[in-house]
Structure formats: C-alpha cells, structure tokens
C-alpha cells in the first residue's frame, strides 16, 4: 500500500504507475490543517476522474472526532472509494461509529449499502490491547494496520530495530487472523536505507503479515521481492498440489510427497503461495 499525500496533484496523477498493489490517498497527517478542504476536493475529483486500473484505492480520513473526518467521508464515499482507512482506532466503537456514518452516506447517495470497505489503523496502546475486538467489529473491515509513529510515542519510546513494535505486531497479526482479515505493517520512514527496509520487510513477512505500507515508489520493488515466493518454493507448492490431485484421483484420503505425508496446513500454505504468485504475475502484466 503506497501512501500518497492528498494535496499533491502530481503524486496523485502518477500514483497508479509504480506497481503498488494498493494506493492510499492521505487526507490526514500529510495535509496541512489549512489545506484540508483543498485536499478533499482534489482527492474527490481524482477518484471520480482518474483510472487507476485494478489498484485498490484507499483514502485515509481525518480523525472522526475532529469534525474533518465526517466531511472526508461525505466526499470520498460519494466518489466511490474502495476502502476508507480509519486512523487512530482505539476501540471497536470507533469502527462501528465510522461504519454507521458510511452507511448513512451510502443510503443518501444511492450507493448499495456495504459497497465501501474499511481498514482500521491501530496507533495506540489502547488500540493494540483492543485489537481483537477491533478486528471483529465490522463486516466491512478488510484489514487492520499498525501505525507505528503514534504508537511508539504513546509507549514513550522511539522506533529502533523493531523490538519496540514486536508486541503490537503480534497482537495485530493474531487479531487479524482471528477475524479472517488482512494484517498490514507500518511504514519504514528512512527511504534512503534500502537494506534496513528489506530487513524490516523480511521480518514482518516471517511474522505472517500480508503486506506493508510504503511511502516512496522506490520501496515497492524491494517489498515485492521479499513477498514474492521463490521459484524453488513455487515448484514445491506445485508438487504438493499435484500429489493432492493424484491422491484424490485414486480415491485416497492420504497424500504424500517424497515420503512425507501432506497434511492440511501444508496444502493451505501451498495454495496461498500459488495464489500470491498468480496475483504478482497479474500485477506485473498490468504494469507492462
């Protein structure tokens, strides 16, 4: 998910060309308080006019308690945004409140109720401790994400080698899995440190995250390389699925590969890996 400042027409115009799986136009932290209205008009017009292909389009709204967030929703839901990213989600009630507002606007605009998806960004100790309730709070939620900068400030620490985020990452990941939705990791702010970015991306992939937010197009390719299964892994996954198909054809309930029994979790991992590879190839094709 690539973050794009919502008041920058040049970045908005080019947002679709860099190969990110999803693009998030930001109306919150990257927009000066005096330009909130202008950014809202700009993102509204961009959503209604520009063709971003098959990219998932997300808009991060302002805090609903600020008064700005409702205006953001009024604009972007009507403009047909795919997913609303709710910032600073501390509780399930925050999600439910936002969902009710989205539903009200969908009804007023004649948009089928349920069209607009949601994502909740968790950025505080309270939010992390409530992660499971947040993840289960709405059928509209497609995922929950960690917002690390506010979170470490709340913890009274700073970002370092990632150890300060380990608890939050594990909580968010397990909450997402419990609810059957995606878990997205936070941004890596030092765009000139590619090695550090790759190490962090490798860590969060090992933990089980589905993806990571990026703040610069330069981070997209390294991230995809970390998440893309190797050809060796893909060959193994194909062999597993072939062995399963062979066992099914023979009416056998038990499949094996190279003398090892293939149980259900192995099949699920193989299916997920092949699906990921297929999606990645589709995206690459779109870029060309």
């Amino acid at each position: 998910m690539m973050f794009v400042p919502g008041n920058n027409p040049g970045m908005i115009k080019d947002a679709g060309i860099y190969g990110a799986d999803s693009v998030m136009f930001d109306l919150e932290d990257s927009v000066a308080i005096t330009e909130k209205d202008a950014a809202r008009f700009l993102v509204f017009q961009a959503l209604k006019t520009l063709d971003f292909g098959k990219k998932e389009i997300v808009v991060r709204i302002n805090d609903l308690n600020s008064g700005l967030g409702i205006q953001d929703l009024e604009a972007i839901v009507r403009a047909g945004v795919h997913v609303v990213r709710l910032p600073k989600t501390d509780s399930a009630e925050d999600v439910v409140f936002c969902e009710k507002e989205i539903e009200r606007i969908e009804r007023a605009a004649g948009i089928p109720v349920g069209t607009t998806g949601m994502m909740a960004a968790i950025e505080s100790a309270n939010g992390v401790l409530n992660a499971k309730e947040i993840a289960h709070s709405s059928d509209r939620l497609i995922g929950i994400a960690l917002g690390a900068e506010d979170y470490v400030t709340d913890l009274k620490t700073t970002r370092s080698d990632g150890v300060e985020l380990l608890f939050a990452r594990c909580m968010i990941l397990n909450a997402a899995r419990s609810a059957g939705i995606d878990a997205l990791d936070t941004v890596y702010s030092d765009v000139n440190n590619e090695q550090g970015f790759i190490e962090e991306a490798t860590l969060i992939k090992k933990l089980g995250f589905d993806g990571k937010s990026v703040i610069n197009p330069r981070q997209i390719d390294p991230l995809h390389k970390v998440f893309m299964p190797s050809e060796k892994d893909l060959e193994k996954a194909r062999a597993i699925m072939a062995a399963i198909a062979d066992a099914n054809a023979k009416g056998s309930g038990v499949a094996s590969l190279n003398g090892k029994m293939i149980d259900k979790p192995v099949v699920l991992r193989a299916q997920r890996m092949l699906a990921l590879a297929e999606v990645s190839q589709t995206d690459e094709g779109e870029e060309v």
Binding site: P9, K13, D37, A38, F41, L42, Q45, A46, K48, L50
Partner: peptide, 15 residues
C-alpha cells in the same frame, strides 16, 4: 494541471 485538478482548485477557491 489535469482537468480534475483545475476543477478541484476552482471549487476550493470558490468555497
């Protein structure tokens, strides 16, 4: 500016 940007900026200025 693209047309959509022109529209957005004119609207923002007008409001």
């Amino acid at each position: 500016a693209l047309d959509c940007t022109v529209r957005a900026r004119v609207r923002a200025a007008a409001y």
